[in-house]
Design a binder for these strands. Sequence first.
DNA 1: CATGAATGAGCCTTCATTCAT
DNA 2: TATGAATGAAGGCTCATTCAT
Lengths: 209, 209, 209, 209
Amino acid sequence: MEAVKERISSKRELQKEARRHAIIDAGFQEFILQGFTATKLDDVAVRAGIGKGTIYLYFDSKESLFEEVIRKNLFPVRDEAEHFSAEFKGTATELLTMHIRRMYASLNEDNMPQLVALIMSEATRFPTLADFFFREMVSRNQEMLRKVVKKGVASGEFRESFPVEFTQILIAPAMISALWRLQFDAHSPLDMDKYCEAHIEFVLRGLKA
Amino acid sequence: MEAVKERISSKRELQKEARRHAIIDAGFQEFILQGFTATKLDDVAVRAGIGKGTIYLYFDSKESLFEEVIRKNLFPVRDEAEHFSAEFKGTATELLTMHIRRMYASLNEDNMPQLVALIMSEATRFPTLADFFFREMVSRNQEMLRKVVKKGVASGEFRESFPVEFTQILIAPAMISALWRLQFDAHSPLDMDKYCEAHIEFVLRGLKA
Amino acid sequence: MEAVKERISSKRELQKEARRHAIIDAGFQEFILQGFTATKLDDVAVRAGIGKGTIYLYFDSKESLFEEVIRKNLFPVRDEAEHFSAEFKGTATELLTMHIRRMYASLNEDNMPQLVALIMSEATRFPTLADFFFREMVSRNQEMLRKVVKKGVASGEFRESFPVEFTQILIAPAMISALWRLQFDAHSPLDMDKYCEAHIEFVLRGLKA
Amino acid sequence: MEAVKERISSKRELQKEARRHAIIDAGFQEFILQGFTATKLDDVAVRAGIGKGTIYLYFDSKESLFEEVIRKNLFPVRDEAEHFSAEFKGTATELLTMHIRRMYASLNEDNMPQLVALIMSEATRFPTLADFFFREMVSRNQEMLRKVVKKGVASGEFRESFPVEFTQILIAPAMISALWRLQFDAHSPLDMDKYCEAHIEFVLRGLKA
DNA sequence: CATGAATGAGCCTTCATTCAT
DNA sequence: TATGAATGAAGGCTCATTCAT
């Protein structure tokens, strides 16, 4: 009896989890399309294929759904990046090259530019979001880049004079390309492969000893 | 009699213009604090020190106020940049250096980072705004940069191989620094002067023949 | 000196009176076009060629302007009708015929159908208006018609059996034609001359002994 | 299971339909009392015993509610009249008599005079309404009357010389009586039964050969 | 658990009225 | 006296949230 109950309940658990994800995904789409304020929970419900009230069985409020949406979509990217960084073997030049290429791959994935833009635009109204984003994404990324640069300096690949506290400079072109594609692709499309290679060459020239 | 009337009317004209600017400024503050949708005209009115209905004596709608806010705050920057670019004499290296320094000066001005972020976040929902911003700001800036690069190539200062269609790469660190200051300054402040100089050195190394 | 002052003041009086009429006329046009609630004093001012505030130098409120508009446009019609009725000599048949023809002439005048429709539609919200209209227009008209019918009965022109308390029956086709022209002329226009003659013939047949 | 669900849903359907009618009825009362513009949806909601927003679950806008109000209140009258007209057997005189009596019965029903007055007063601002009213009510009624008159002429009951294009003349007294009762009943009440009979006699005398 | 009908606070917008010039 | 800028109360409409089914 209990086993049956458990099986049923775990089935239910699975269904609940699946539905939860469906809502988060639907919310994600709406939030990146409309922004936080302009998103209607009605539309989220329609997109998720559920009733409007059901959302409140899974989330306390529109705001908490938003937080979950961000969280769920950023964690995989962060985890991937950490995993990659931990495993890579090679020269600093190779590592930096690979890292930048991976950034473009991430940014080319569906919805990544939108996600970044969404975070940028809502961060002011959600200080928690800015904290979270800085802690989980930005600072880790910076740390990684600093290590690479220092490694290159140690190995004689890179010049000593580059200030490691400004690693933003190294990846800024990639971030900007994401915003560009989101807003200006219709006006003037970017050839991302060539852009990426130009970025890499530029960075290596800027860093080389 | 007519002189009096004119004086009076010009007084009124002046007052109207002053009030118009007050509304635009108040709107600017609210829009960058709250975003377009979340901004209440009530709050704009309070901030401008006027009645709610008064806004409609000067603007047709919340949307048209928004457009005016963007316009009024972008034009000066654009005009300054154009004027500067038209008059400058010197080597390509000097010109590029000055141009980047000027960008940081602009971006350090109050509210400029907020303005950029605002435009970025609302552009998706206001295609007109994206058009406008691209046309009046982005494409002009690109054109200017292309000219500088070409000039440097012609004079032998810069290498030929840098792809002039990707001038975004050259100024991306400046844009990113603006967003950084807006969102992450509390977590990790940037020394803008040093950052600027690092950016310039980086760009010159990346471009040099 | 005083004579001059008087002349001036009477000049001013005239101007004031003229302006007052201009406002009433403008109000009339707007009221019959839009109805009371939907009429904007702004539009009235524009039509009268004056400033919005000026209206309040002549009228206490939108409502009192409305009352004046009705009053001013009904009095002439009433006075004309009274004058005509007092002077006419002839048989009852002739008198009734003339009276009906005059009604059509009135109703064909510009804005008369609109005025009637306006009164009809606003009377519920302006009980005073209904009182006024009944007292000054409707009851007098009824009285007039009763006299004609009685005169015709006395002279043997009309049958005795027609109930003189229902003189509405005699003029209803004229009233209806006014409303018809206002609302349905586009769908099915009325030849007013023929309609009028048909009405007269119908009434005379209905009344004849 | 499904049966239960169906029962429940049909219960809900019924409730929804009931509420829809409640809103229409409340709207009707407010519209005839205040006119379209002056009617507040707040008041409609209060009268219907619901919340303000609920109205928008059933109607797109104040205007579409207005249209439904008119439609719902006119169709029954129209359908009844058509049914009656299609089935009646008898002489033209009898038919016309019955038709007029039926009109008075309709007009004596609660709110009918108000409805007519409402349509009259709003038709100018709602051309669609005028179209609708003309098409569904006026022209059909006219057609019916024309047939009756022609039938009477054919049977020798009525004179040939009455112009069938002016059937308005035949029913005008009934329409006017409705407006009278609405506006002037307090000043001078009408004995509707006697008025109706006087109207019928008058019409028959006016038409008889 | 799921639903969607119901709610009402809240916002944009309008306009009669006031008042400084 | 005349103006029109300014006001703020009020109304149509939206939507996050609740709750009966």
